[in-house]
Amino acid sequence: MLLEAKKLHLKFGAIAALDDVALDVTAGEVVAIVGESGSGKTTLLRVLAGQMAPDAGAVHYLGRDVLGMTEAEHRRLIRSDWGFVHQNPRDGLRMGVSAGGNVGERLMALGARHYGNIRDEAQAWLQRVEIDSARIDDLPRHFSGGMQQRLQIARTLVTRPKLVFMDEPTGGLDVSVQARLLDLIRALVRELGLSVLIVTHDIAAARLLADRILVMRRGQVVEQGLTDRVLDDPQHPYTQLLVSSVLAA
């Protein structure tokens, strides 16, 4: 059991952002949290990643109490075992640092001291995320949105984190760009055996990537299970509504 959360409650004033939420992720699993705006899915992700404290409940990573960790322990975890892919790549990149520097940073933070090796690894990762490695010295502010997002993914995965949190990684991107990104994420997850917790409002993306899916509405998990089962045979009225609302191309 990689990540385990129980009885999470969080209120913003009178609004229940999380209402008795439980969730777990095992090694090698991709879990999608879907829901519409205001469902609480992003709040849930933030609480699980230790970025926000809930009013009640517990989160454990490999048996360690995430919410009770000191800031130092938490930051160490974020830098080594975990990765976080932000919806807006600008939140997860250093815009004033070259692509190579962005990818190499985590390596250097963990002690890598050979410039040539760091650069080679950065170049390999750029290729892996389909960025022309000739752009290794370019600044991300000169990249398209899709490229920035792919760079963020490279930067996050370079240290082979055990668990990756993704917050709407394809939000705001053009459809063709989204397709490419989803395919890339899918391939990397398989190749690296990553465990991923992905928040998305895009059900098709969830179907493509996730082993399991949680459907959230107004802070509650209304249904969860095998992705294709939940999407093809939804039980909860809200899930049925959600699935029937998706337009087929």
Binding site: G225, L226, D228, R229, D232, D233, Q235
Partner: peptide
């Protein structure tokens, strides 16, 4: 068939 595959619950 779908029940057998777990696609339907």
């Amino acid at each position: 068939m779908r029940c057998l595959y777990g696609n339907y619950g």
